[in-house]
Design a binder for these strands. Structure first.
Lengths: 215, 215
DNA sequence: GAATTAATTGAACGTTCGTTTTATTAATGC
DNA sequence: GCATTAATAAAACGAACGTTCAATTAATTC
């Protein structure tokens, strides 16, 4: 056999991407073979090389597009000229929504970085850093205007991102909690963590929780 | 050649474990070959099979002992009969100290779970769940005695663990922050996140940060 | 409807993998 | 110092890997 009836390059490529994301998320990049991937798509292994020149090219494409999507999503969701609390809330909501929606792709982007060449790793990390920088800027603004009370901006940003991204590890759609409930809880935890001053009305008291137990 | 002068089974096995942890952490379990590992130890690949019957046995041994170590460390550090704030502080301090000290092993235990057989995966997850259960118990006690203000105990526990374990992703010893500084910051963030009542002296006010921005 | 292009198959390539087997030498026990 | 046991090397096994190549057929173009 050769070309099959109804075959379409565009559709096949999309099917390859989709199957690759879920297969890599489940088995890991190294453990997934090109033959396995091809079988999932319903095609011979050789056919994959029409769309991606190497296995690593495939991985890199998935990661790059994931990061581009994340940055684009934030560009769209980001409120312009708002106060730090509003901006932080938008960041948290966007982050959680995006990551829950793309659990598998996030898994791939976070876990398989070591399989990239140095150059490509740098590219992906650059995008990631740009995204994290947005959060640090919000935290810094909030700290400077006393909207937040933060020890260390960089450390707090990393802690928040790890906490939020961690959702994909345990969250399963359709279980005990809805996406809205999870998002609301994380938003509330985030605001407490950064010591956010209550924004609407009530003034915030001076005594900070945690002070008494700090080393 | 055969047996080499000065060779010692105990030392070789220890060297294999050590090399395996750092090699798997750096390359990933699937990407590390037994020949690579043997070369790192300064031995032929066949010699490894004297100590570990298969590659997966080696991985499982590393993971099981890591988890056993974590549980044992907590058993030792756990304060008995103390209030929730003290117990939570001890949990955070133990968790961060243990994970910073064993960054590579933690990486292995968290990232390579999918390479275990179903049965062994279950064993490791059982230990992990037992460890997480300790945190949930502390949070529940704190919530019931109004020492903490928590939306959802399970969700908060997961968020905290993800946040704390995330330290190993970005923390490098000898850089900007010391272990003590990092621990103090995480402790402070944790206490705010759970809405801990200030324990020594000052009463805690009613208005909670985050309320105003919750969905 | 012939020529061209797009999509895929099937077979093969050289390499590397985890693992096993057999032989060989160092340390140990008596 | 001889017998035994411990620790390793060296070579080989079949299987699986990523990738390439030539052949073949479906769709498209004119």
């Amino acid at each position: 056999m050769a070309r099959t009836t109804g075959s379409d390059g565009g559709k096949t490529e999309a099917a390859v991407r989709e199957a690759a994301v879920s297969l890599i998320a489940r088995l890991g990049y190294e453990a997934m073979s090109m033959r396995q991937l091809a079988a999932e798509v319903g095609v011979q292994a050789a056919a994959l090389y029409r769309y991606f020149p190497t296995k690593e090219d495939l991985l890199f494409t998935l990661m790059r597009e994931h990061m581009e999507g994340l940055l684009k999503a934030w560009e769209t969701a980001r409120p312009t000229g708002a106060d730090p609390v509003t901006r932080l809330a938008a960041y948290v909501e966007n982050h959680i929504a995006f990551h829950i929606e793309r659990r598998h792709a996030t898994h791939v982007s976070n876990m398989e970085l070591r399989s990239l060449s140095h150059e490509r790793l740098t590219q992906v990390l650059k995008m990631r850093t740009a995204y994290e920088k947005e959060l640090r800027a919000i935290l810094r603004d909030g700290a400077e205007t006393d909207a937040f009370e933060i020890d260390d901006t960089g450390l707090t940003a990393m802690a928040l991102i790890q906490m939020m991204t961690g959702v994909i590890v345990w969250f399963r759609p359709g279980e005990r909690l809805s996406i809205a409930e999870v998002t609301a809880s994380y938003l509330s935890m985030t605001m407490r963590l950064v010591g956010a001053t209550i924004s609407h009305g009530t003034a915030r008291p001076s005594g900070r929780a945690g002070d008494a137990v700090a080393l």
